[in-house]
């Protein structure tokens, strides 16, 4: 059945706005406590297969072993090498805040020094000509009094020359 275009179009407007409290679980909570208190980024390794994780994993996704022993964690970064990136030029709605994304906004996957792991975070640089996979970057932390124990305790990764 074909609708006649002159019909008034009736929509139901609907906005979902629902607060959640998400539990981090043990290793991720400790990862954020270290980020907040000591500016340390930690990674760990599966004792069975040797796969590396950042943030530290509780259970290895490859072989299902428990691997969350804090005394075996290693501090990685804050320097690292850019593996890949994107630059967002178009603004989209952020579902968790209801605000629009400020663009340009660039994000990289950074291979952190010290273990074969990546951390995903914003890049300070947003000019495509100045971002190249393989370039060296370093995490910039917020001042201690502003850190809250979440991923935003790192502001971004800045480009460094070595």
């Amino acid at each position: 059945m074909k609708a006649k275009p002159q019909l008034e179009l009736i929509y139901l407007d609907m906005t979902l706005k629902m607060p959640f409290k998400w539990n981090t679980g043990e290793p991720l909570g400790e990862f954020f406590r270290e980020l907040k208190a000591n500016e340390k980024i930690y990674a760990n390794q599966c004792p069975t297969c040797g796969r590396n994780y950042c943030p530290p994993a509780n259970i290895c996704t490859r072989d299902h072993s428990r691997c969350n022993e804090k005394d075996k964690w290693v501090a990685v970064g804050p320097k690292g090498t850019l593996l890949t990136f994107f630059i967002c030029e178009q603004s989209f709605l952020i579902p968790t805040t209801g605000e629009m994304l400020e663009v340009p906004f660039s994000v990289g996957l950074v291979m952190l020094d010290g273990a074969p792991v990546v951390l995903q975070h914003c890049l300070q640089e947003t000019d495509v000509e100045k971002i190249k996979p393989g370039m060296r970057v370093e995490a910039v932390f917020k001042p201690k009094e502003e850190r809250k124990g979440n991923i935003f305790d790192i502001i971004h990764f800045k480009t460094i020359k070595e």
Binding site: L28, F86, C88, I94, T96, F105, V107, Q120, I151
Partner: peptide, 27 residues
């Protein structure tokens, strides 16, 4: 795209992803 953004881990990835396009761009 906003609905897809909620598929990402809220603590680690979600703030740095734009729906499915961001992951595809990095890949």
């Amino acid at each position: 795209t906003s609905a897809i953004t909620t598929i990402w881990d809220p603590a680690i990835n979600r703030p740095f992803e734009v729906g499915a396009i961001s992951g595809l761009a990095m890949i």
